[in-house]
Design a protein around this nucleic acid. Structure first.
Length: 709
DNA sequence: GTGCCTCGAGTTCC
DNA sequence: CTCGAGGCAC
């Protein structure tokens, strides 16, 4: 696909056409790469396309497109970086946007800990860069990794070694044998401006903002290029440590500084929310003169013992929060409203905007959530945007929520065309024409077509191959779309994926390798990737089915409860909604309520859906769930029930501690309960425990049991 | 019944 | 990342 007319022989018109084609191909390939989708192209093909694009641009500078791929950040494919699994996950932070969010945060912290006195927090600027985890073994830098998805990052060793702020070797005594030090790589305003000026002079690509410049520089495959880019680093956190750094967050930061790291000089200690908010205002006032980008202030509970008691929610720590500065805003025109159909049939309106730059990024789409949101109301009927509705043709104010998702903040009624009419939300599915119904009390309107609706079917398949589900390499969203519409070798249901190779072999013509852009090699790879997933853990299979209300976490609950596919499938088949032993067993799972249970049972009783599930299961070898008892704690694997008032810690804390030790915390006492921890005022649960002969201990005995003081 | 806390679902741009 | 809503504690 790259062998075309030599660049020097191109006519102007051909060149223009070629640039447009290359721009789209390269953009798609970049997207596929970064989205972990199908790698449609080999690196060699990708490089060839970029070279051709650059060559044509060099010969016809006037034709260079506004969206030229040579200007795209992060366009370099970076196959050269190895993957590194973080020992301790790199989490994100909960966000706060106003003073009330901060006082709420402080209230939650104190409530969780059962403290009425003030808590001390560190406050530091939130650097707008990219986070990096640096591993030091015996004081020597061994392995710097990017954040990645939090679980697994990329090894950027050579690049990180070129950053002056990152010590190769730590200073001082008593350096822990193993340390993962975390912080932010960033570029100063001055260095960013100089880099762009230098690049512009060389007709090289310029960067939209310092963050992109830092990210692009760190991801260079050639470390000498990274070395020529002036990157900096602030240390502010840590992962795995063989010895603690200090007893407090502020002490640990001071220690990091002593070890030779740069730490942010604006880090201060605040006693309670008033001091935190004062520091927020102080940092905001200095924002313009700092010389580097920050996007808010981060507060962390100072006492590390309290941090560890607070622990983590599924993806954020309870002991920290990011107080974000107000988002950047931009006005543009709303050109049209499109409706997308999701895998559950949800009709989601999307605003198509006249492209506008917001916070250094060109935005052309924005989410409109649902019908009410367009009309200017939230789900409770309260006005948003002072109740102003959104119409096609309006001037709208766009921002990027959390600096990512474009949303519409406001509408300029003075600019509204006199002819405009309120947006009419469709009541038929735009894809299959089935009625789209809004259940009472529901915010979304859903297509009732089910598997009949092609949009729903495709979205379900995309979910099936997504990360967390089957995660089949080389079979991403784009390939799913293509196979769904393929007349020779269609994939219409999950089972079709696993019969693909056999169907291909059965054909005399072997269509697979003759698909556009496909060859022997890509076929072998795809077939191998599919075979690789024929063995699948039970929880992944349950999640992949795409049953409404069954996400990642509920799928694991179900897998751990039923252990095997045979047991699970039999229980779902036998269950009746609202009654019977299977229903009671299902809804007794902590975290499974009536709605989720009904959704599961309905799916297994629906003839077409059931047929698809059976056909799929027949293709697979499902791995039983392994009960993991990670700790040797006496409560590991036990089911506990707390009742009455706990005096030394809150209920939430007791639950999270017990779970960290491998115990399951249930809400009510049953024959499966191993132990009841009863505080003063325990009533019916303690009685039930006595009746069932379940062991009962008091809070002090419980604390002794888990070795807490 | 009310008020948290989490999870699920949908979305954008790199 | 955000919103809605499910699930559970009080």
């Amino acid at each position: 696909m790259i062998s075309e007319t030599a660049v020097e022989n191109l006519t102007l018109a051909q060149a223009r056409e070629d640039l447009a084609r290359l721009a789209s191909l390269i953009t798609d390939a970049n997207r596929a790469y970064h989205g972990n989708d199908a790698p449609d192209l080999t690196d060699a093909d990708f490089d060839a396309m970029k070279h051709r694009n650059a060559a044509i641009e060099a010969r016809f500078p006037s034709l260079k497109r506004a969206d030229s791929p040579s200007d795209q950040v992060g366009a370099a494919p970076s196959d050269g970086f190895g993957k590194i699994k973080h020992d301790v996950r790199m989490l994100s932070l909960e966000n706060a946007f106003d003073a009330a969010d901060i006082t709420d945060f402080d209230d939650r912290v104190r409530k969780f800990l059962g403290l009425s006195s003030a808590v001390s927090y560190t406050a530091e600027p939130k650097i707008d860069g990219l986070s990096l985890s640096l591993r030091y073994v015996n004081g020597r830098l061994t392995q710097p990794a990017t954040r990645g998805d939090g679980e697994t990052g990329e090894n950027v060793t050579d690049n990180a070694r070129t950053i002056a702020d990152i010590p190769q070797r730590l200073q001082g005594d008593n350096i822990p044998a193993l340390m993962d030090i975390r912080g932010e790589v960033y570029m100063s305003h001055a260095d960013f401006a100089a880099l762009n000026a230098r690049n512009a002079a060389k007709a090289d690509k310029t960067f939209a903002n310092p963050r992109n410049a830092a990210a692009g520089s760190l991801r260079q495959l050639d470390a000498s290029i990274t070395a020529s880019r002036p990157l900096r680093f602030f240390a502010y956190a840590w992962g795995a440590l063989s010895d603690p750094l200090a007893k407090t967050q502020s002490g640990a930061i001071a220690r990091l500084h002593d070890l030779g790291f740069q730490t942010n000089p604006l880090t201060t200690l605040c006693n309670g929310p008033d001091a935190m908010l004062a520091q927020y205002r102080a940092i905001e006032a200095q924002r313009a003169t700092l010389g580097y980008d920050i996007d808010g202030v981060v507060y962390k509970v100072d006492d590390l013992a309290l941090q560890s008691r607070l622990g983590f929610r599924s993806s954020t720590p309870r002991w920290a929060i990011a107080h974000k500065f107000p988002a950047e805003l931009a006005w543009t025109r709303l050109e049209s409203i499109d409706i997308q159909v999701g895998r559950t049939g949800a009709l989601s309106p999307v605003a198509r905007l006249k492209p506008v730059t917001v916070g250094g990024v060109v935005v052309s789409n924005a989410t409109l959530h649902n019908e009410d949101y367009i009309q200017g109301r939230d789900s409770r009927g309260n006005p948003i945007r002072q109740g102003r509705d959104i119409r096609v043709g309006d001037w709208v104010q766009v921002y990027r929520a959390g600096d990512v998702i474009p949303k519409i903040a406001d509408v300029d009624l003075a600019q509204r065309p006199a002819t405009s009419t309120p947006y009419q939300f469709p009541d038929l599915c735009p894809d299959c024409g089935s009625p789209a119904i809004r259940e009472p009390g529901d915010a979304v309107r859903r297509c009732t077509g089910g598997l009949i609706c092609p949009a729903q079917a495709v979205e379900r398949l995309k979910h099936f191959v997504a990360r967390g589900a089957f995660d089949i390499e080389g079979l991403g969203a784009k390939q799913i779309e293509a196979f769904f519409n393929d007349s020779d070798l269609p994939i219409k249901t999950p089972a079709d994926i696993f019969t693909l190779a056999a169907r291909d072999t059965a054909q005399p013509l072997r269509k697979l390798k003759n698909r556009d852009g496909w060859g022997e090699k890509s076929v072998t790879n795809l077939v191998a990737a599919i075979e690789d997933k024929r063995q699948i853990p039970l929880n992944r299979l349950i999640f992949a089915l795409g049953i409404r209300h069954v996400g990642d976490s509920s799928a694991s609950l179900l897998a751990n409860h039923y252990t095997s596919w045979a047991t699970f499938e039999a229980a779902m088949t036998a269950a009746e909604i609202g009654s019977g032993p299977e229903w009671r067993d299902l809804t007794a799972i902590d975290g499974v309520g009536d709605v989720l249970a009904a959704s599961l049972v309905t799916a297994f009783h629906h003839p077409a859906e059931r047929a698809a599930i059976d056909a799929l299961a027949a293709q697979l070898s499902v791995q039983d769930a392994v009960q993991n008892a990670p700790s040797d704690s006496p409560v590991a694997g036990k089911t506990l029930v707390f009742t009455g008032t706990l005096e030394k810690m809150s209920r939430a804390e007791a639950k999270s501690r017990a779970e960290a030790l491998g115990a399951k915390v249930a809400g009510s006492v049953s024959a499966k309960t191993d132990l009841v921890i009863a505080g003063p005022g325990a009533g019916s649960k303690a009685k039930a425990a006595e009746a069932l002969g379940v062991a009962i201990i008091d809070e002090d005995a419980w604390l002794a049991l888990i070795g807490a003081t």
